[in-house]
Design a protein around this nucleic acid. Structure first.
Lengths: 105, 105
DNA sequence: TCAATAATTGTAAATAATTTACAATTGCAA
DNA sequence: TTGCAATTGTAAATTATTTACAATTATTGA
């Protein structure tokens, strides 16, 4: 069975995560990070919205959300924003690797 | 390690799916179903938004989205909307069972 | 302590996206 | 061709988000 077909096993969920794109309000609900703070992080270049056009609503994917959650954790641990962002970059690579392994299985 | 802690294994993704809530625009992007059609299905009672207050924007969870995708498939196969919804109900129970097994592992 | 910088927060005005309601259209089977 | 299911169109009102400018709070080194 192809990865893109619907099924009740787990292969579908990875396709789902690939397609998943949400707005700032949803990200805020999911992560507990206020929209204002998300915009600030983006302004600083810590995260990037998928939206290309100016003035349109921001869109984030799973990787973005994951990144924000990790940064939030590190901030709580006492790291600065820049240090957190740096650490997360490395951590993201590990996660990405894990997901890719599972996706191509 | 607790299920709610962040990690680079998969247990996190289930927590993520639990928290995932998206608006109608995002659902439309993810599923390919036009917002107008999603509202129509809701009007008919086929799906239900999480929003309690009238006039506020609709919110959907993972189960809702999965349901819509399954209905869309069955419609393409030639089933009526009501028949699709009925079939999906049973299919959802199987999926729910599978997810619960994995969540509590 | 004081100044400087980092991080966050507040908010008004403009714009984007969604809602409801009423209506029209399309497809199909009896 | 009639009837019903399913979908689609759209205007006006409302909700949510954006940008821009500014203020506030926290931390750190002199």
């Amino acid at each position: 069975m192809s990865k893109s077909e619907t099924s009740n096993d787990l292969s579908f969920d990875f396709d789902f995560l690939d397609k998943l794109v949400v707005g700032i309000g949803e990200v805020s609900q999911i992560t507990g990070i206020p929209p204002r703070q998300i915009r600030y992080w983006e302004e600083k270049g810590i995260i990037k919205s998928l939206t290309e056009e100016e003035g349109k609503n921001r869109r984030y994917n799973y990787e973005n959300i994951k990144r924000m959650l990790l940064i939030k954790e590190l901030l709580d641990e006492g790291y600065t924003l820049d240090a957190s962002a740096e650490k997360v970059k490395k951590r993201m690579e590990m996660i990405e690797e894990t997901l890719n392994k599972l996706k191509n299985k």
